[in-house]
Design a protein around this nucleic acid. Structure first.
Length: 513
RNA sequence: GGCCCGUUCGUCUAGGGGUUAGGACAUCAGAUUUUCAUUCUGGUAACAGGGGUUCGAUUCCCCUACGGGCUACCA
């Protein structure tokens, strides 16, 4: 068993867009698989027909693609030896296992109606107990354990609706070793007789999950902590199905918590605090409501993945920036934390900033280009690359570039008033005029030449650089901050700079001051 | 309520029977070219509480508190 090929799966339900917590689960599965040269499988668990949401499956697939965590097999990624990977398409497979359990005395038919179940719950709760369908209460319900063989036969023949429940033993210790949490021991009396097979002919999660993991030869089940309470039930199923020898190892991941307050991170938190909780933008097919996504917000997938990987896992050192390949190298389940992690939108931005810095100006230009084309900016690529090189030190996202540096493409429409009122005075005005004249005379327009001219003008006018530096920036860019000024001027070019200076002089009647 | 899991700066975390308990984000202060939303330097800031075990506990054990999860013919 220990030398089986590592096979893990990500098994989401298509009930809506994939939450970033889900992406992290997929990521850890992916990293683990790659680390051990194993397989990563995408299985769609669509056994609940009522909660099915149109487009959710496509969304999951697209999200994984964008994140660069692509499965080797699975829905949307090509069939392997274990197709199909959609549980609704595997429907005929499950019943035999439920029946096998009945045959072995580990499961039974139950014919109770919703009303009967409700009644039982009320009765027990009224008596101060914890209502559950278990080894005690099952004795008073309508099932193949209490009904005679003939009655059961008749009911089945008459197509009476039924479910198949697991016959959980009365008082048995169930132990499982979680790769992250160590030994977890639960007494079987705490587990109820879970429905394995529903009246609609579909298996429930518990049955389908165990059967498919077995059939798909899954070696490690890496999933969210919300599954920990039902893990003993799954252990029981492996045992009763006779699959104990090949039971996968379990690893239950800590949950992602909301940034403030308490509780699981939810879509509402994102709306409330202004950050996406989904990798991609999602439009609800019913309400039409749009939820923002990391991709649309301008995050790089590798930055997003890096951030997610570090939320609940950490390599041994102090390093925080890891490429996908480095994550694969470093990843191990025993370094996954036990406690839930509060999500931090600020740090997420920081990660993106780090990745923005690491991108080449050429790469950034390519990303930015569509926006510029849309704005009808006609400039050659070479120029844009240079602009990107200056802007990348100032931004967290490419989509901030335009606001930060539109002056590279057009003269400022307005000037920063606070700088004008603070710095524009008769003395600085004479400087601007002189500086403009000197620039006109200059044959060279490199950053260093501009700087030399600037400094000599300062000397001539006997004025400190700090008194006029910002004013010059505003006169040309309109704004008070930005990349190295002389680099900016050199890039904008002599003609344009002089035109803008002249316009500025005219507008503020610098001559007349 | 019951059961399960957890608890190191505000947040993500490193560490681990003896440490000045380390890093990052955030925050604050200082410095730098000249502007800063850059960069650099520095500061504030944590082992939930109580019992054990031990020469010694933040680290191991127990209890309490707090937090989270589960408690469906949902996954």
């Amino acid at each position: 068993m220990s030398n089986r090929r590592v096979r893990v799966r990500f098994a989401p339900s298509p009930t809506g867009p994939l939450h970033m917590g889900g992406v992290r689960t997929a990521l850890y599965n992916y990293l683990f698989a790659k680390k051990h040269n194993g397989d990563f499988i995408l299985r769609i668990e669509d056994t609940d027909q009522e909660r099915f949401v149109k487009g959710a499956e496509e969304y999951i697939i697209e999200s994984l693609k964008w994140c660069g965590i692509e499965p080797n097999e699975g829905v949307g990624f090509g069939d392997g030896a274990h197709a199909p990977y959609r549980q609704s398409e595997r429907k005929p497979l499950y019943k035999q296992y439920a029946e096998q359990l009945i045959k072995n005395g580990h499961a039974y038919y139950a014919f109770d109606t919703k009303e009967e179940l409700e009644e039982m719950r009320k009765r027990i709760e009224a008596a101060g107990g914890n209502a559950s369908y278990n080894s005690i209460t099952r004795q008073n319900m309508r099932n193949s354990l209490t009904l005679s063989e003939d009655e059961v036969k008749k009911l089945l023949e008459n197509k009476a609706p039924y479910v198949i429940r697991l016959k959980v033993p009365r008082n048995e210790e169930i132990k499982l070793q979680d790769l992250i949490r160590g030994w977890v021991v639960v007494n079987s009396s705490q587990i109820d007789d879970k429905v394995l097979f529903k009246a609609d002919g579909m298996p429930t999660y518990h049955l389908a999950n165990v059967v498919d993991d077995y059939l798909m030869q899954i070696t490690h089940v890496i999933r969210g902590e919300e599954w920990l309470p039902s893990a003993p039930l799954h252990v029981l199923l492996y045992k009763y199905l006779g699959w104990e020898e090949v039971m996968p190892q379990f690893a239950h991941l800590p949950l992602l918590l909301k940034p403030d307050g308490n509780g699981k991170l939810s879509k509402r938190d994102g709306d409330r605090l202004g950050f996406p909780v989904f990798p991609l933008q999602w439009t609800d097919p019913v309400s039409g409501e749009i939820s923002s996504g990391y991709r649309e917000r301008g995050y790089f997938p590798d930055a997003f993945i890096n951030m997610l990987a570090l939320l609940g896992w950490h390599a041994s050192g102090n390093r925080e920036i890891f490429s996908k390949e480095e994550l694969i190298q470093e990843f191990s389940l025993d370094r996954v934390n036990k406690a839930g992690a509060k999500f931090d939108p600020e740090k997420t931005k920081w990660f993106n900033q780090q990745y923005l810095r690491k991108r080449s100006p050429e790469q950034l230009a390519e990303i930015w280009m569509p926006e510029l084309q849309q704005k009808n900016i006609k400039t050659d690529t070479n120029y844009i690359v240079k602009v990107c090189a200056l802007l990348q030190e100032k931004a967290c996202f490419v989509n901030e570039f335009w606001d930060l540096g539109k002056y590279f493409f057009e003269a400022p429409g307005q000037y920063d008033d606070s700088v004008i009122s603070k710095k524009l005075n008769p003395q600085s005005a004479t400087f601007i005029k002189l500086f403009t004249e000197e620039l006109i005379k200059s044959t060279d327009f490199s950053a260093s030449t501009i700087e030399t001219i600037f400094k000599s003008c300062c000397e001539t006018r006997n004025i400190k650089t700090g008194e006029v530096m910002q004013l010059v920036r505003v006169s040309i860019t309109g704004v008070s901050g930005g990349p190295a000024l002389f680099e900016v001027l050199a890039l904008i070019g002599k003609n344009e700079v002089i035109n803008r200076l002249k316009h500025f002089i005219e507008k503020y009647q610098v001559n007349g001051l």
